[in-house]
Amino acid sequence: MGTPTVGVRIRGRGADVFSVALGAGLGAVARYGVESAVGPGWGALWLVNVLGSALLGLLLSAVTATPTRAGDAAAGSEPRPSPGRLTPLLGTGFLGGFTTFSTAAVMALDGPSGVGFLAGMTLGCVLAAAGGWRLATRVRR
């Protein structure tokens, strides 16, 4: 599809931009809610990121027939069946805004084992995403 400018691409995707904004705003508020309830720290981050990764794996597996790249799904690079319309709102938006990388990167600088915590979180989130993916695959069969 060539590489049109962002402006050209966005014009046809106004609804998706709105969905992403709404979803990401709500996702960030949900993350803030977890941080407020659990208290800021690695515990809240683990909860948010592992849960969000599992749900994204579940969602993407549910809306796509074959393993896909999340970035491509987010970009809507090809026409998808109607459930795929939920991806900008729930995937790119809500779960993207719910989970976060920057706080983990800053917190990793606190203490000597911070980078290890971040690496462990990455492993945990990849496993969670794989678990979510398999769950949706099984349900579909």
Binding site: A24, G25, G27, A28, R31, Y32, E35, V48, N49, G52, S53, L55, L56, G57, L60, P67, T68, R69, A70, G71, A74, T92, L95, G96, G97, F98, T99, T100, F101, S102, T103, A104, A105, M121, T122, C125, V126, A128, A129, A130, W133
Partner: peptide, 21 residues
């Protein structure tokens, strides 16, 4: 700017799914 903007700009879930990919 922090919890909102940077938290929303960065993501762990897509990172995890991409690594899985």
């Amino acid at each position: 700017w922090g919890t909102g903007l940077c938290g929303g700009l960065t993501t762990f879930s897509t990172f995890a799914v991409e690594v899985l990919g």
